[in-house]
Design a protein around this nucleic acid. Structure first.
Lengths: 244, 244
DNA sequence: CGGTGTTTTGACCACGATCAATTCTCGTGG
DNA sequence: CCACGAGAATTGATCGTGGTCAAAACACCG
Protein backbone atom coordinates (compact mmCIF):
# COMPACT_ATOMS: atom_id res chain seq x y z
CA UNK A 1 0.00 0.00 0.00
CA UNK A 2 2.93 2.34 0.65
CA UNK A 3 4.22 4.70 -1.97
CA UNK A 4 7.92 4.31 -2.60
CA UNK A 5 9.35 7.02 -4.80
CA UNK A 6 12.97 5.97 -4.92
CA UNK A 7 14.11 3.69 -2.17
CA UNK A 8 13.09 3.63 1.48
CA UNK A 9 16.52 4.82 2.55
CA UNK A 10 16.57 7.72 0.13
CA UNK A 11 13.14 8.80 1.21
CA UNK A 12 14.07 8.60 4.86
CA UNK A 13 17.30 10.56 4.63
CA UNK A 14 15.81 13.15 2.29
CA UNK A 15 13.48 14.07 5.11
CA UNK A 16 16.50 15.17 7.12
CA UNK A 17 18.94 16.57 4.61
CA UNK A 18 18.16 17.52 1.05
CA UNK A 19 20.70 15.66 -1.00
CA UNK A 20 22.33 16.57 -4.30
CA UNK A 21 22.15 14.38 -7.41
CA UNK A 22 25.66 13.09 -6.70
CA UNK A 23 24.75 12.26 -3.17
CA UNK A 24 21.59 10.53 -4.27
CA UNK A 25 23.61 8.48 -6.73
CA UNK A 26 26.08 7.47 -4.02
CA UNK A 27 23.13 6.50 -1.89
CA UNK A 28 21.50 4.37 -4.55
CA UNK A 29 24.81 2.68 -5.18
CA UNK A 30 24.83 1.52 -1.56
CA UNK A 31 22.02 -0.93 -1.84
CA UNK A 32 22.42 -3.41 -4.57
CA UNK A 33 21.63 -6.56 -2.67
CA UNK A 34 18.05 -7.00 -1.68
CA UNK A 35 17.33 -9.95 0.56
CA UNK A 36 14.29 -11.80 1.86
CA UNK A 37 14.00 -13.22 5.38
CA UNK A 38 11.20 -15.36 6.70
CA UNK A 39 9.21 -14.60 9.84
CA UNK A 40 10.56 -16.01 13.06
CA UNK A 41 14.09 -16.81 11.99
CA UNK A 42 16.54 -14.28 13.45
CA UNK A 43 18.67 -12.14 11.18
CA UNK A 44 21.70 -11.68 13.34
CA UNK A 45 22.53 -13.46 16.54
CA UNK A 46 23.25 -11.47 19.66
CA UNK A 47 26.99 -11.17 20.25
CA UNK A 48 27.88 -12.13 16.72
CA UNK A 49 29.64 -9.51 14.66
CA UNK A 50 28.54 -9.05 11.09
CA UNK A 51 29.69 -6.25 8.88
CA UNK A 52 26.36 -5.33 7.38
CA UNK A 53 23.32 -3.28 8.20
CA UNK A 54 19.93 -3.35 6.52
CA UNK A 55 17.26 -0.98 5.41
CA UNK A 56 13.86 -2.50 5.83
CA UNK A 57 11.90 -2.34 2.59
CA UNK A 58 8.84 -4.37 3.53
CA UNK A 59 7.59 -6.16 6.63
CA UNK A 60 8.08 -5.76 10.37
CA UNK A 61 11.09 -6.57 12.52
CA UNK A 62 11.80 -6.20 16.23
CA UNK A 63 15.21 -5.86 17.85
CA UNK A 64 15.60 -7.35 21.28
CA UNK A 65 17.91 -8.63 23.97
CA UNK A 66 17.62 -11.93 25.78
CA UNK A 67 18.56 -12.33 29.45
CA UNK A 68 20.22 -15.38 30.93
CA UNK A 69 16.93 -16.33 32.60
CA UNK A 70 15.18 -16.42 29.24
CA UNK A 71 13.17 -13.23 29.60
CA UNK A 72 13.26 -10.96 26.60
CA UNK A 73 13.16 -7.20 26.17
CA UNK A 74 12.18 -5.80 22.81
CA UNK A 75 14.06 -2.54 22.35
CA UNK A 76 12.21 -1.28 19.33
CA UNK A 77 10.10 -2.28 16.39
CA UNK A 78 11.21 -1.48 12.85
CA UNK A 79 8.76 -0.75 10.08
CA UNK A 80 9.47 -0.16 6.38
CA UNK A 81 12.04 2.57 5.87
CA UNK A 82 13.85 1.97 9.14
CA UNK A 83 17.47 1.08 9.77
CA UNK A 84 18.45 -2.31 11.09
CA UNK A 85 21.71 -2.84 12.91
CA UNK A 86 23.35 0.49 12.24
CA UNK A 87 24.90 0.38 15.69
CA UNK A 88 26.23 -3.09 14.99
CA UNK A 89 28.34 -1.72 12.18
CA UNK A 90 29.71 1.16 14.16
CA UNK A 91 30.46 -0.66 17.36
CA UNK A 92 31.50 -3.75 15.44
CA UNK A 93 29.52 -6.02 17.70
CA UNK A 94 25.87 -6.90 17.40
CA UNK A 95 24.68 -6.10 20.89
CA UNK A 96 21.24 -7.44 20.20
CA UNK A 97 19.23 -9.69 17.93
CA UNK A 98 16.61 -9.14 15.24
CA UNK A 99 13.46 -11.14 14.72
CA UNK A 100 11.44 -10.70 11.56
CA UNK A 101 7.85 -10.53 12.75
CA UNK A 102 6.56 -11.03 9.24
CA UNK A 103 8.38 -12.16 6.13
CA UNK A 104 10.50 -9.19 5.24
CA UNK A 105 12.44 -7.68 2.41
CA UNK A 106 15.56 -5.83 3.38
CA UNK A 107 18.35 -4.11 1.53
CA UNK A 108 21.81 -5.06 2.67
CA UNK A 109 24.36 -2.30 3.19
CA UNK A 110 27.93 -3.41 3.74
CA UNK A 111 29.87 -1.65 6.45
CA UNK A 112 32.77 -0.89 4.15
CA UNK A 113 30.51 0.65 1.51
CA UNK A 114 28.79 2.82 4.05
CA UNK A 115 32.04 4.09 5.50
CA UNK A 116 33.34 4.84 2.01
CA UNK A 117 30.17 6.76 1.22
CA UNK A 118 30.61 8.81 4.35
CA UNK A 119 34.12 9.76 3.34
CA UNK A 120 32.99 10.79 -0.13
CA UNK A 121 29.85 12.64 0.81
CA UNK A 122 30.07 14.07 4.32
CA UNK A 123 26.49 15.29 4.23
CA UNK A 124 25.44 11.70 4.05
CA UNK A 125 27.13 11.03 7.38
CA UNK A 126 25.30 14.02 8.72
CA UNK A 127 21.98 12.63 7.52
CA UNK A 128 22.66 9.24 9.04
CA UNK A 129 23.70 10.82 12.33
CA UNK A 130 20.42 12.64 12.27
CA UNK A 131 18.41 9.52 11.59
CA UNK A 132 20.27 7.72 14.36
CA UNK A 133 19.42 10.54 16.75
CA UNK A 134 15.75 10.15 16.01
CA UNK A 135 16.01 6.43 16.67
CA UNK A 136 17.72 7.16 19.96
CA UNK A 137 14.97 9.60 20.91
CA UNK A 138 12.49 6.78 20.42
CA UNK A 139 14.47 4.47 22.66
CA UNK A 140 14.62 7.21 25.30
CA UNK A 141 10.87 7.68 25.17
CA UNK A 142 10.48 3.94 25.47
CA UNK A 143 12.75 3.97 28.52
CA UNK A 144 10.67 6.67 30.19
CA UNK A 145 7.53 4.69 29.48
CA UNK A 146 8.79 1.51 31.08
CA UNK A 147 10.32 3.36 34.02
CA UNK A 148 7.52 5.72 34.91
CA UNK A 149 4.22 4.86 33.24
CA UNK A 150 1.72 2.28 34.42
CA UNK A 151 0.69 -0.59 32.18
CA UNK A 152 -2.28 1.20 30.64
CA UNK A 153 -0.47 4.39 29.71
CA UNK A 154 2.48 2.35 28.51
CA UNK A 155 0.33 0.33 26.13
CA UNK A 156 -1.53 3.41 24.92
CA UNK A 157 1.71 5.23 24.25
CA UNK A 158 3.20 2.29 22.40
CA UNK A 159 0.20 1.85 20.12
CA UNK A 160 0.03 5.58 19.45
CA UNK A 161 3.72 5.89 18.62
CA UNK A 162 3.51 2.95 16.26
CA UNK A 163 0.47 4.44 14.58
CA UNK A 164 2.19 7.79 14.17
CA UNK A 165 5.26 6.22 12.63
CA UNK A 166 3.19 4.06 10.31
CA UNK A 167 1.24 7.11 9.20
CA UNK A 168 4.54 8.76 8.21
CA UNK A 169 5.13 5.98 5.68
CA UNK A 170 1.53 5.74 4.57
CA UNK A 171 0.68 2.56 6.42
CA UNK A 172 -1.71 3.93 8.99
CA UNK A 173 -4.19 6.66 9.86
CA UNK A 174 -5.81 8.09 12.97
CA UNK A 175 -8.42 5.39 12.52
CA UNK A 176 -5.96 2.54 12.96
CA UNK A 177 -3.50 0.25 11.21
CA UNK A 178 -2.68 -3.36 10.43
CA UNK A 179 -0.41 -4.78 13.11
CA UNK A 180 1.18 -8.24 12.95
CA UNK A 181 2.44 -8.17 16.56
CA UNK A 182 1.22 -10.82 18.98
CA UNK A 183 0.28 -10.01 22.55
CA UNK A 184 3.49 -11.74 23.50
CA UNK A 185 5.44 -9.23 21.42
CA UNK A 186 3.66 -6.42 23.21
CA UNK A 187 4.54 -7.97 26.56
CA UNK A 188 8.23 -8.22 25.68
CA UNK A 189 8.25 -4.68 24.35
CA UNK A 190 6.50 -3.15 27.33
CA UNK A 191 8.18 -5.10 30.12
CA UNK A 192 4.92 -6.79 31.08
CA UNK A 193 3.71 -10.39 31.17
CA UNK A 194 1.64 -11.67 28.28
CA UNK A 195 -1.25 -12.32 30.66
CA UNK A 196 -1.28 -8.77 31.88
CA UNK A 197 -1.06 -7.42 28.35
CA UNK A 198 -4.29 -9.24 27.62
CA UNK A 199 -6.00 -7.68 30.63
CA UNK A 200 -4.77 -4.19 29.76
CA UNK A 201 -5.99 -4.57 26.19
CA UNK A 202 -9.39 -5.61 27.48
CA UNK A 203 -9.58 -2.55 29.73
CA UNK A 204 -8.66 -0.24 26.87
CA UNK A 205 -11.18 -1.94 24.59
CA UNK A 206 -13.97 -1.85 27.17
CA UNK A 207 -13.08 1.75 27.94
CA UNK A 208 -13.75 2.55 24.30
CA UNK A 209 -10.21 3.75 23.67
CA UNK A 210 -8.53 1.32 21.33
CA UNK A 211 -9.11 -2.15 19.97
CA UNK A 212 -6.32 -4.63 19.31
CA UNK A 213 -7.73 -7.67 17.55
CA UNK A 214 -6.99 -10.02 14.67
CA UNK A 215 -3.87 -8.19 13.58
CA UNK A 216 -5.52 -4.83 13.50
CA UNK A 217 -5.35 -1.80 15.79
CA UNK A 218 -8.43 0.44 15.78
CA UNK A 219 -8.42 3.77 17.54
CA UNK A 220 -11.87 4.21 19.02
CA UNK A 221 -11.12 7.46 20.79
CA UNK A 222 -7.85 8.95 19.57
CA UNK A 223 -7.96 12.08 21.71
CA UNK A 224 -8.72 10.36 24.96
CA UNK A 225 -5.99 7.83 24.23
CA UNK A 226 -3.48 10.64 23.73
CA UNK A 227 -4.47 12.15 27.06
CA UNK A 228 -4.12 8.83 28.83
CA UNK A 229 -0.68 8.19 27.33
CA UNK A 230 0.49 11.81 27.54
CA UNK A 231 1.63 11.25 23.98
CA UNK A 232 3.59 14.09 22.42
CA UNK A 233 4.96 13.17 18.99
CA UNK A 234 7.53 15.97 19.00
CA UNK A 235 10.41 13.54 19.13
CA UNK A 236 9.17 11.76 16.00
CA UNK A 237 8.89 14.78 13.76
CA UNK A 238 11.00 14.73 10.69
CA UNK A 239 9.96 18.16 9.60
CA UNK A 240 12.05 20.09 7.12
CA UNK A 241 15.77 19.58 6.65
CA UNK A 242 18.20 21.38 8.92
CA UNK A 243 20.71 21.64 6.09
CA UNK A 244 19.56 22.83 2.69
CA UNK B 1 42.74 13.07 39.70
CA UNK B 2 42.14 12.40 36.03
CA UNK B 3 44.79 12.90 33.43
CA UNK B 4 43.71 15.18 30.63
CA UNK B 5 46.12 15.22 27.73
CA UNK B 6 44.35 17.64 25.45
CA UNK B 7 40.68 18.13 26.02
CA UNK B 8 38.02 15.69 27.12
CA UNK B 9 36.40 15.78 23.69
CA UNK B 10 39.63 15.12 21.85
CA UNK B 11 40.47 12.24 24.11
CA UNK B 12 37.05 10.72 23.71
CA UNK B 13 36.89 10.90 19.95
CA UNK B 14 40.49 9.76 19.54
CA UNK B 15 39.45 6.51 21.12
CA UNK B 16 37.16 5.93 18.15
CA UNK B 17 38.93 7.44 15.19
CA UNK B 18 42.55 8.44 15.04
CA UNK B 19 42.50 12.02 13.87
CA UNK B 20 45.01 13.98 11.80
CA UNK B 21 46.67 17.17 13.00
CA UNK B 22 44.26 19.22 10.89
CA UNK B 23 41.31 17.42 12.35
CA UNK B 24 42.63 17.85 15.87
CA UNK B 25 43.02 21.57 15.21
CA UNK B 26 39.44 21.82 13.94
CA UNK B 27 38.35 20.01 17.03
CA UNK B 28 40.21 22.28 19.41
CA UNK B 29 38.78 25.26 17.63
CA UNK B 30 35.30 24.03 18.52
CA UNK B 31 35.49 24.65 22.19
CA UNK B 32 36.50 28.10 23.08
CA UNK B 33 33.87 28.89 25.63
CA UNK B 34 34.20 27.06 28.91
CA UNK B 35 31.34 27.54 31.33
CA UNK B 36 30.57 26.76 34.95
CA UNK B 37 27.19 25.65 36.22
CA UNK B 38 26.19 25.16 39.83
CA UNK B 39 24.67 21.98 41.21
CA UNK B 40 20.90 21.74 41.11
CA UNK B 41 20.13 24.45 38.59
CA UNK B 42 19.14 22.95 35.25
CA UNK B 43 21.16 23.67 32.13
CA UNK B 44 18.46 23.48 29.53
CA UNK B 45 14.75 23.29 30.06
CA UNK B 46 12.79 20.46 28.53
CA UNK B 47 11.07 21.54 25.34
CA UNK B 48 13.22 24.60 24.93
CA UNK B 49 15.39 24.69 21.84
CA UNK B 50 18.92 25.93 22.29
CA UNK B 51 21.54 25.72 19.59
CA UNK B 52 24.40 24.46 21.70
CA UNK B 53 25.72 21.24 23.09
CA UNK B 54 28.32 20.73 25.80
CA UNK B 55 31.25 18.51 26.56
CA UNK B 56 31.48 17.83 30.24
CA UNK B 57 34.95 18.69 31.53
CA UNK B 58 34.42 18.24 35.27
CA UNK B 59 31.55 17.21 37.52
CA UNK B 60 28.47 15.02 37.12
CA UNK B 61 25.23 15.68 35.26
CA UNK B 62 22.09 13.66 34.71
CA UNK B 63 19.66 13.99 31.83
CA UNK B 64 16.03 13.28 32.57
CA UNK B 65 12.41 13.67 31.56
CA UNK B 66 9.58 14.83 33.78
CA UNK B 67 6.06 13.46 33.48
CA UNK B 68 2.91 15.47 33.91
CA UNK B 69 2.31 13.75 37.27
CA UNK B 70 5.68 14.96 38.55
CA UNK B 71 7.52 11.66 38.42
CA UNK B 72 10.93 11.79 36.87
CA UNK B 73 12.95 9.35 34.80
CA UNK B 74 16.69 9.83 34.59
CA UNK B 75 17.80 8.64 31.18
CA UNK B 76 21.51 8.65 31.77
CA UNK B 77 24.28 10.07 33.87
CA UNK B 78 27.12 11.99 32.29
CA UNK B 79 30.62 11.96 33.69
CA UNK B 80 33.67 13.97 32.54
CA UNK B 81 34.34 13.47 28.85
CA UNK B 82 30.71 12.84 27.92
CA UNK B 83 28.48 14.71 25.51
CA UNK B 84 25.56 16.76 26.72
CA UNK B 85 22.65 17.54 24.46
CA UNK B 86 24.04 16.31 21.18
CA UNK B 87 20.60 15.11 20.20
CA UNK B 88 19.16 18.50 21.02
CA UNK B 89 21.30 20.06 18.33
CA UNK B 90 20.44 17.52 15.69
CA UNK B 91 16.72 17.32 16.32
CA UNK B 92 16.58 21.02 17.11
CA UNK B 93 14.45 20.45 20.16
CA UNK B 94 15.67 19.65 23.63
CA UNK B 95 13.59 16.61 24.38
CA UNK B 96 14.82 16.42 27.93
CA UNK B 97 16.45 18.40 30.72
CA UNK B 98 19.85 18.38 32.37
CA UNK B 99 20.55 18.68 36.06
CA UNK B 100 24.10 19.26 37.25
CA UNK B 101 24.51 16.89 40.19
CA UNK B 102 27.67 18.64 41.29
CA UNK B 103 29.06 21.98 40.26
CA UNK B 104 30.31 21.36 36.76
CA UNK B 105 32.58 22.76 34.14
CA UNK B 106 31.43 22.30 30.58
CA UNK B 107 32.68 23.37 27.19
CA UNK B 108 30.07 24.92 24.98
CA UNK B 109 29.89 23.82 21.36
CA UNK B 110 27.66 25.84 19.09
CA UNK B 111 25.47 23.93 16.68
CA UNK B 112 26.62 25.97 13.72
CA UNK B 113 30.30 25.41 14.53
CA UNK B 114 29.78 21.69 14.88
CA UNK B 115 27.95 21.42 11.58
CA UNK B 116 30.68 23.43 9.86
CA UNK B 117 33.30 21.16 11.33
CA UNK B 118 31.46 18.14 10.01
CA UNK B 119 31.43 19.59 6.53
CA UNK B 120 35.15 20.35 6.62
CA UNK B 121 36.33 17.14 8.23
CA UNK B 122 33.99 14.26 7.48
CA UNK B 123 35.91 11.88 9.69
CA UNK B 124 34.88 14.01 12.59
CA UNK B 125 31.23 13.36 11.80
CA UNK B 126 32.10 9.69 11.68
CA UNK B 127 33.69 9.89 15.11
CA UNK B 128 30.72 11.70 16.59
CA UNK B 129 28.32 9.21 15.05
CA UNK B 130 30.36 6.52 16.71
CA UNK B 131 30.30 8.20 20.09
CA UNK B 132 26.55 8.72 19.76
CA UNK B 133 26.12 5.03 19.01
CA UNK B 134 27.90 4.10 22.19
CA UNK B 135 25.65 6.44 24.13
CA UNK B 136 22.65 4.82 22.53
CA UNK B 137 23.94 1.37 23.45
CA UNK B 138 24.01 2.53 27.06
CA UNK B 139 20.43 3.73 26.89
CA UNK B 140 19.41 0.40 25.39
CA UNK B 141 21.10 -1.50 28.19
CA UNK B 142 19.35 0.78 30.64
CA UNK B 143 16.03 0.02 28.97
CA UNK B 144 16.60 -3.72 29.27
CA UNK B 145 17.47 -3.30 32.91
CA UNK B 146 14.30 -1.43 33.78
CA UNK B 147 12.14 -3.70 31.68
CA UNK B 148 13.45 -7.08 32.69
CA UNK B 149 15.66 -7.00 35.78
CA UNK B 150 14.46 -6.96 39.38
CA UNK B 151 15.46 -4.14 41.70
CA UNK B 152 18.60 -5.85 43.03
CA UNK B 153 20.08 -6.75 39.66
CA UNK B 154 19.10 -3.35 38.31
CA UNK B 155 20.97 -1.54 41.07
CA UNK B 156 23.98 -3.83 40.76
CA UNK B 157 24.13 -3.30 37.02
CA UNK B 158 23.84 0.45 37.35
CA UNK B 159 26.63 0.73 39.90
CA UNK B 160 28.87 -1.58 37.88
CA UNK B 161 28.33 0.29 34.63
CA UNK B 162 29.06 3.58 36.31
CA UNK B 163 32.23 2.14 37.84
CA UNK B 164 33.36 0.79 34.51
CA UNK B 165 32.82 4.11 32.78
CA UNK B 166 34.56 6.03 35.55
CA UNK B 167 37.51 3.65 35.35
CA UNK B 168 37.84 4.51 31.64
CA UNK B 169 38.50 8.14 32.58
CA UNK B 170 40.65 7.36 35.59
CA UNK B 171 38.03 8.16 38.21
CA UNK B 172 37.39 4.69 39.58
CA UNK B 173 38.77 1.21 40.08
CA UNK B 174 37.44 -2.26 40.80
CA UNK B 175 37.59 -1.27 44.45
CA UNK B 176 35.09 1.55 44.08
CA UNK B 177 34.62 5.23 43.27
CA UNK B 178 33.40 8.55 44.59
CA UNK B 179 29.73 9.03 43.71
CA UNK B 180 27.79 12.24 44.36
CA UNK B 181 24.40 10.71 43.52
CA UNK B 182 21.72 10.68 46.19
CA UNK B 183 19.46 7.69 46.73
CA UNK B 184 16.75 9.78 45.17
CA UNK B 185 18.83 10.06 42.00
CA UNK B 186 19.22 6.30 41.97
CA UNK B 187 15.46 5.90 42.35
CA UNK B 188 14.74 8.19 39.41
CA UNK B 189 17.36 6.46 37.30
CA UNK B 190 16.20 2.93 38.05
CA UNK B 191 12.45 3.48 37.99
CA UNK B 192 12.10 2.68 41.69
CA UNK B 193 10.92 4.61 44.72
CA UNK B 194 13.52 6.23 46.96
CA UNK B 195 12.36 4.07 49.85
CA UNK B 196 12.88 0.88 47.95
CA UNK B 197 16.30 2.03 46.76
CA UNK B 198 17.30 2.29 50.38
CA UNK B 199 16.12 -1.25 51.09
CA UNK B 200 17.90 -2.67 48.06
CA UNK B 201 21.11 -0.93 49.03
CA UNK B 202 20.85 -2.43 52.49
CA UNK B 203 20.40 -5.91 51.05
CA UNK B 204 23.42 -5.51 48.80
CA UNK B 205 25.47 -4.16 51.67
CA UNK B 206 24.44 -6.91 54.09
CA UNK B 207 25.03 -9.47 51.37
CA UNK B 208 28.63 -8.29 51.23
CA UNK B 209 28.34 -7.21 47.60
CA UNK B 210 28.62 -3.43 47.43
CA UNK B 211 28.45 -0.49 49.81
CA UNK B 212 26.89 2.84 48.87
CA UNK B 213 27.54 5.33 51.65
CA UNK B 214 28.62 8.89 52.20
CA UNK B 215 29.16 9.62 48.55
CA UNK B 216 31.29 6.59 47.94
CA UNK B 217 30.66 3.26 46.24
CA UNK B 218 32.77 0.36 47.49
CA UNK B 219 32.75 -2.98 45.70
CA UNK B 220 32.98 -5.62 48.39
CA UNK B 221 32.67 -8.56 46.03
CA UNK B 222 33.11 -7.47 42.44
CA UNK B 223 32.75 -10.92 40.88
CA UNK B 224 29.62 -11.89 42.69
CA UNK B 225 28.11 -8.51 41.86
CA UNK B 226 28.83 -9.07 38.17
CA UNK B 227 27.11 -12.44 38.36
CA UNK B 228 24.07 -10.95 40.06
CA UNK B 229 23.77 -8.16 37.51
CA UNK B 230 24.74 -10.30 34.50
CA UNK B 231 27.00 -7.39 33.66
CA UNK B 232 28.82 -7.63 30.34
CA UNK B 233 30.72 -4.44 29.52
CA UNK B 234 31.03 -5.28 25.82
CA UNK B 235 28.79 -2.38 24.85
CA UNK B 236 31.03 0.08 26.67
CA UNK B 237 34.30 -0.88 25.03
CA UNK B 238 36.04 1.83 23.14
CA UNK B 239 38.83 -0.42 21.99
CA UNK B 240 40.93 0.60 19.03
CA UNK B 241 39.76 2.86 16.22
CA UNK B 242 37.77 1.38 13.35
CA UNK B 243 39.29 3.89 10.95
CA UNK B 244 43.01 4.45 10.96
C1' DC C 1 -8.04 -34.42 13.49
C1' DG C 2 -4.22 -34.19 16.53
C1' DG C 3 -0.64 -30.44 17.34
C1' DT C 4 1.07 -26.08 18.21
C1' DG C 5 0.64 -21.37 19.28
C1' DT C 6 -2.35 -17.41 20.61
C1' DT C 7 -5.89 -15.52 23.37
C1' DT C 8 -8.70 -15.37 27.37
C1' DT C 9 -10.04 -15.73 32.16
C1' DG C 10 -9.64 -16.98 37.20
C1' DA C 11 -7.16 -17.51 41.69
C1' DC C 12 -3.38 -16.37 44.31
C1' DC C 13 0.95 -14.21 45.40
C1' DA C 14 4.99 -10.99 45.72
C1' DC C 15 7.69 -7.15 44.53
C1' DG C 16 7.89 -2.79 45.09
C1' DA C 17 4.86 1.61 46.06
C1' DT C 18 2.92 4.51 49.45
C1' DC C 19 2.34 6.58 53.88
C1' DA C 20 4.37 7.77 58.08
C1' DA C 21 7.71 8.49 61.65
C1' DT C 22 12.55 8.81 63.30
C1' DT C 23 17.35 9.70 62.91
C1' DC C 24 21.33 11.85 60.80
C1' DT C 25 23.87 15.37 58.56
C1' DC C 26 25.00 19.70 57.55
C1' DG C 27 24.64 24.54 56.73
C1' DT C 28 22.83 28.96 58.70
C1' DG C 29 21.75 32.28 61.91
C1' DG C 30 20.85 33.61 66.83
C1' DC D 1 28.16 27.26 70.87
C1' DC D 2 23.80 25.84 70.25
C1' DA D 3 19.14 26.10 68.00
C1' DC D 4 16.94 25.54 64.11
C1' DG D 5 15.50 23.88 59.54
C1' DA D 6 16.11 21.37 55.22
C1' DG D 7 17.48 17.29 52.89
C1' DA D 8 18.92 12.75 53.06
C1' DA D 9 18.82 8.19 54.94
C1' DT D 10 16.50 4.61 57.48
C1' DT D 11 12.92 1.64 59.06
C1' DG D 12 8.09 -0.13 59.83
C1' DA D 13 3.24 -1.02 58.29
C1' DT D 14 0.06 -1.58 54.79
C1' DC D 15 -1.61 -1.68 50.03
C1' DG D 16 -1.92 -2.51 45.02
C1' DT D 17 -0.15 -3.30 40.44
C1' DG D 18 1.24 -6.64 37.89
C1' DG D 19 3.47 -11.56 37.94
C1' DT D 20 2.80 -16.54 38.23
C1' DC D 21 0.29 -20.72 37.77
C1' DA D 22 -3.34 -23.14 35.70
C1' DA D 23 -6.92 -24.27 32.53
C1' DA D 24 -9.94 -23.60 28.79
C1' DA D 25 -11.37 -21.71 24.23
C1' DC D 26 -9.87 -20.79 19.83
C1' DA D 27 -7.24 -20.54 15.90
C1' DC D 28 -4.48 -22.33 11.95
C1' DC D 29 -1.86 -25.91 9.72
C1' DG D 30 -0.08 -30.40 8.15
Amino acid sequence: MSTVQRSPLTRKLSAFVSLSETELATLEHLHQRSRIFVAGRDLVQQGQSKQAAYILAAGWVCSYKIQRDGSRQIVDVQIPGDFLGLRSILLRTADHSFEPITDIQAVEVLAADLLDAFAQTPRLAMAVLWAASRDEAMVVEHLVGIGRRDAGARMAHFLLELGYRLALVGMGTKAGYACPLTQHHLADALGLSAVHVNRVLRQLREGGLVTFREGHVTFNNYDRLITLAEFDPGYLDQTGPLLK
